[in-house]
Design a protein around this nucleic acid. Structure first.
Length: 613
RNA sequence: GGGGUCGUAGUUCAGUUUGGUUAGAACGCCUGCCUGUCACGCAGGAGGUCGAGAGUUCGAGUCUCUUCGGCCCCGCCA
């Protein structure tokens, strides 16, 4: 990283704690920082002084320092904020510390000033902290003093710069969109803000600047981007926070390839600039159908191969009822090779079965190919020919197992996808490439929601259908097929929708948008949003589309997730300065809190009693 | 909304299975000694409403119920 280490002197210091080396020997310096450690040897006193740039050892020698300063040096404790002046000198021979960047030198102190004492910290500020995350979040300012965490935010800063640099170079304009907007019918629950001027009315905080960036295309900016804060009131996960940052961008007169080219260039630049890693582009492209069939998930981790094999054709005439019935109901039979899994235990089988069942599968069948025999509770229901063809098709060798799911297509995909993830994680001997990017495109535009008996947008209500599928919009309205049928015209419409996946994490989602009012209205009506409601919530966009809106599309890479991957972080909390807990609370400041009655009155709000169970 | 898991000294944990004397360890903290340490060392010391509340019991850190909080997952979310 190109941290500029020069000219960081201030009125209180001449240098930083990570800066001095052999070439500075003899120099008179003053450093400021926190006490990272202190060793009182009775005569000599050593203090390790830490700031953002590093740690430097300060030595206090009673022969050279006044009693008054020795006494002060003796009194310092962890995290005291101090200022020290002295001369840089080489450490005595054999006293170097190879673990420290500044380990060849030390400061022979002349004087010390305590700028601010510290309470005994609730945990030691060190990279290998034992403190719980709960405690670290409460004392986030101490947690952030840890170099490990500070580096991550520095990398985030570098990433921000690299993104801006690249998009600027490609003709994008950074435009801020409002945080107080109207509630629009997008997927997630809105955070809302009451209006004082208009009592009883509410702003919503943006789930994303989606509609506004489309309006900017109508305005003619042609290429827009923003490091945009997005807020969603939904349950949290390791990779989800109530507010997150997207590299939101939109372009006019483009198709999917144009967007891919820009994003691939951006990723190359980003990874090169920040990590000095070379990314191969263009990225692999798959259709939704392909990744689901091969990997059982729409965001596969391609650092390992391990594909799912379709075995349906082998069992078309099977006497095994579980298989034949699954097929006759329009389902599939699929399997995945479990390398080296021929001798797994009963317990292990149960665990794997549990994984399959948790994703909706009714059960998990298996064939274990041992030396000279096949071990399987279902072998007696299958013909030898069926078994050997299945093993061969799935490339199962002696010593391996074959895990089989017979179920509806989606269920089979989900459960085998989960098994694949589990096996891939465990059999990590497949030398993983570091960064496995891929595009997933041609998502279905709609997904039937059996609970609500209606179609939902698979991604985004403004995504345009494939041109060739436009006629299906009308065909669906007249279709005799039940909406739950996968052959229903609306279920067959492919959307101009794409995701970018990195190492099994979805890091971006985008699409080519609808720029024609008529088509947008049709899509909204399929989603069960009638004209009146569409007009009310959405009218401003529909109207804007009528003034020569250009064809346009874009994408929104999730910045926190990308930085989390770049910094090898388990959770995006590690790359956000002040994150919230999984219950959406901020342990440091206590948000959310109740507010004063006066504030409620001013807003015309009344709090209802909590319902008792 | 559902499932899992955790909550004991300032901190990280042991103790909970099978209820029973004064709840332990390490690090940190305090005091003293120590002139080349860098996980400094040595000697001594302080520190606990066992997350909270209720119950069972002669007796609860330990059993039951309720509740609060952290983390992970499903639903939800792009």
């Amino acid at each position: 990283m190109d941290v500029n280490n020069k000219d960081l002197g201030t009125s209180l210091r001449t240098h930083t704690c990570g800066q001095l080396g052999e070439s500075d020997v003899g120099r008179k310096v003053t450093l400021c920082g926190w006490v990272d450690g202190h060793r009182d040897l009775g005569g000599l006193i050593f203090i390790d002084l830490r700031d953002r740039w590093g740690v430097t050892q300060i030595a206090f020698d009673p022969e050279e320092v006044s009693d008054e300063y020795m006494e002060l040096a003796r009194s310092v404790r962890y995290e005291y904020s101090i200022r020290v002046s002295g001369e840089v000198r080489l450490r005595p021979e054999d006293m170097e510390n190879r673990q420290m960047i500044t380990g060849k030198i030390e400061i022979r102190a002349d004087s010390i000033e305590i700028l601010n004492r510290s309470e005994t910290p609730p945990f030691l500020v060190e990279d290998d902290t034992a403190a719980s995350e709960e405690l670290r979040l409460k004392y986030r300012y101490l947690d952030l003093r840890r170099p490990w965490l500070m580096r991550k935010l520095e990398i985030r800063h570098q990433a921000t710069r690299a993104v801006r640099e690249y998009l600027d170079s490609r003709g994008f304009v950074e435009i801020e969109t409002p945080l107080l907007i109207r509630s629009t019918p997008e997927g997630a629950r809105d955070y809302v803000v009451p209006s004082r001027e208009q009592k009883g009315k509410f702003y919503a905080l943006p789930q994303s600047p989606q509609l506004l960036k489309q309006i900017l295309m109508v305005s003619g900016f042609d290429r827009y981007y923003q490091l945009a804060r997005c807020l969603r009131d939904e349950d949290l996960r390791a990779d989800r926070q109530p507010e997150h940052t997207q590299i939101d961008l939109e372009m006019s007169y483009v198709n999917q390839d144009d967007v891919f080219e820009v994003v691939e260039g951006m990723m190359k630049h980003l990874f090169k600039k920040v990590l000095d890693d070379d990314i191969e582009a263009p990225f692999a492209r798959f259709t939704y159908k392909e990744v689901m069939d091969k990997y059982g998930i729409d965001k596969p981790d391609l650092r390992f191969g391990l594909q799912i094999t379709d075995l349906s054709d082998i069992f078309t005439n099977s006497k095994f009822k579980v298989f034949s019935e699954a097929l006759s109901k329009g389902g599939v039979i699929r399997g995945i090779r479990y390398k080296g899994g021929a001798d797994i235990s009963r317990k292990r089988i149960d665990d794997l079965t549990e994984i399959a069942k948790s994703r909706g599968a009714k059960g998990l069948a298996y064939l274990l190919k041992r030396d000279g025999e096949i071990k399987s509770p279902i072998a007696k229901f299958l013909s030898e020919d069926e078994i050997s063809r299945a093993l061969e098709k799935a490339a199962v060798e002696t010593g391996d197992g074959l895990l089989i799911v017979a179920d509806a297509w989606k269920t089979a995909c989900d459960s085998l996808g989960a098994l694949r993830a589990k096996l891939g994680e465990e059999l990590s001997e497949t030398a993983p490439m570091k960064w496995a990017f891929l595009w997933v495109c041609e998502f279905p535009l709609f997904e039937y929601n059996p609970d609500l008996s209606r179609f939902d947008a698979m991604h985004n209500i403004v995504t345009s259908p494939h041109n060739e599928d436009n006629e299906l919009l009308d065909a669906g309205a007249k279709s005799e097929l039940p909406p739950s049928d996968p052959e229903h015209p609306w279920a067959r419409i492919r959307g101009n929708q794409y995701d970018l996946v990195l190492n099994g994490i979805e890091i971006a989602s985008g699409g080519i948008r609808i720029h024609n009012r008529k088509i947008q209205e049709k899509v909204l009506s399929i989603l069960g949003i009638d004209e009146e409601r569409a007009d009310r919530m959405f009218g401003f966009l529909l109207e804007a589309l009528e003034y020569g809106a250009p064809p346009h599309g874009g994408i929104a890479p999730g910045f926190d997730r990308i930085v989390a991957l770049m910094t090898d972080s388990e959770s995006i909390r590690d790359v956000i300065a002040f994150p919230k807990t999984t219950a959406a609370q901020s342990l440091m400041d206590g948000a959310p809190t109740e507010i004063d009655q006066a504030q409620l009155d001013e807003l015309g709000l009344m709090i209802r009693e909590k319902k008792k169970k």
